[in-house]
Amino acid sequence: MRKALIKAESLSKVFAGKNKGETRALYDVSFELYEGETLGIVGESGSGKSTLAKLVCGLMPPSSGSVWVGRTNVGKAGRKERLELYARMQMVFQDSKGSFDSRRTLGDGIGESLRNRKLPKEEIRRRVEELLTDCGLSGEFADRYPREVSGGECQRAAIARALAIKPEILILDEATSALDVTVQAQIIGLLKRLREERGLSILFICHNIALVQQFCDRVLVLKEGRVLESGMTDELLSSPQNPYTRALIEAVF
């Protein structure tokens, strides 16, 4: 059995509404992300994919259940544990431009995690340029502002930021969904190469089942906050058991 890097145990999330009662975004979701694999999470809008990503990253606390990364309970990590946790696990957001502070340069954003770990300035600058080059941009992009670059370039910078502290786990929350098809293909190519070179384990959250097919080892289908089925990508896509999964596949192919 391979080592599980992320262990999500019966996660639930309930949002308290102001007057229309509560909304349940996730019901009792459990899964594991094993070392070296890419797990795809598919589902339509409103299925709870993004909520799941935020819970796994500790950006919001779960209503019940827990996420374990190694021996750290993500929802209950203190400041010191968090620094260690986010050195192992990073996230790339859907809205690439919105994920950078519009008043700071891309280089500033990419170097933020290094700065918070007290690296010297010149070292940070050197590493930021190296990361940008590795992600298919030139070092000059470090001095650009988010509004001065294209969506694809910005997402490359976001990937560079996520990789800055050499994490082993990458969470991609619809990271390619806002990009047009050709740029999307380039970013997937980049991610494939980085996954190979750096031995990343990836949680790939996406509504596009075709992308999941070419990028993921294993798939988890989410609908209305519940896991419908999961399995190896090829098996699941060739012989889906659940009618919803079948409909989801037929909508694309």
């Binding site: 990073q90 996230m91 994920s99 950078f100 995690s113 918070n116």
Partner: peptide
Amino acid sequence: GRSFIEAAFLSGDTDLQLMTRHILPN
């Protein structure tokens, strides 16, 4: 609620850093 604040949080910013470096200037 913006993702740049979440990204800064994942970069290990403290609450004070988030408030003074990212929220206040914006």
